[in-house]
Simulated scan of single mutants.
Amino acid sequence: MSQLKHKNYFQIQFALSTDDFDGFTVKSLRNKLLHQNDEARLYAEDRRAIYRTLIAMVNSGELHKKVAPNPQQSTFHKTSLFIPEHTMAIKEPVILSDKKIDENSSANFDTCSDRSSIKYLESQLKEYQISLIISVGESEEYKSLFAHLPDMRSELEMLYMKSREKSSTLMGQITAINNVLSYCKSSSL
């Protein structure tokens, strides 16, 4: 599925990423954006842009709009197409090796049973996944700007490469945390 080109898409996608945020109105999404981060607050000011992005997400199949008699009470619901392809792959734990960790090795995973360790790893994972989504969006925007600003191509290429490097680093961090989480979950069985 190709990403939408709306400037606020990634902030809206992030706001909608929690499971409990579904069946929302434009107003409730706007309120969530206001409390999200500085960049999201900027986008929250433009109610029409939020609505345009939501309608584009409906047209792409990511959302379903349930129309109410009062248009302000119409609700949007996530569909199975909501999660972009690159974040689906991120959620899958990746195990780099079939080898079991030797009990005598320096790695100590006794804390895997500690719920706070798992919570910490999951919160770090979520942070890295969000950063990756933003970084991928940034890379895609630089790529699309190549065509519109050919005289700035060398500067855009430099920014594009930095963004791609950042994405690679984030993927490595996500893989590492997924590996540790997979080990912790398999060792607790």
Results as ranks from 00 to 15, higher is better:
Q3Y: 04
L4S: 13
K7H: 15
Y9M: 00
Q11L: 09
F14K: 14
A15C: 10
S17V: 05
S17T: 09
D22N: 06
F24Y: 00
F24P: 07
L33V: 13
L34K: 12
Q36S: 13
R47I: 08
R48P: 04
R48F: 04
I50M: 15
L54T: 01
N59Q: 11
G61F: 04
H64Q: 11
K65T: 10
K66C: 07
V67T: 12
A68G: 06
A68V: 08
P69E: 11
P71H: 02
T75M: 04
F76V: 03
K78R: 10
T79N: 09
S80M: 12
S80E: 11
F82W: 10
T87M: 13
T87L: 11
M88D: 09
A89V: 10
V94H: 07
D98A: 09
S105F: 03
S106T: 15
A107P: 03
A107K: 10
T111D: 04
C112T: 00
C112S: 06
S113Q: 03
S117W: 07
E122M: 14
S123I: 11
Y128L: 00
I130F: 11
S131A: 11
S131K: 13
L132W: 07
L145P: 00
L145V: 02
H148V: 14
P150H: 06
P150Q: 06
R153C: 08
E155P: 00
E155S: 12
Y160L: 13
E165W: 03
M171I: 09
M171W: 07
Q173H: 11
Q173E: 15
Q173T: 04
N178V: 03
L181A: 00
Y183C: 03
C184L: 02
S186N: 12
S186H: 08
S187Y: 02
S188N: 10
S188V: 13
S188K: 14
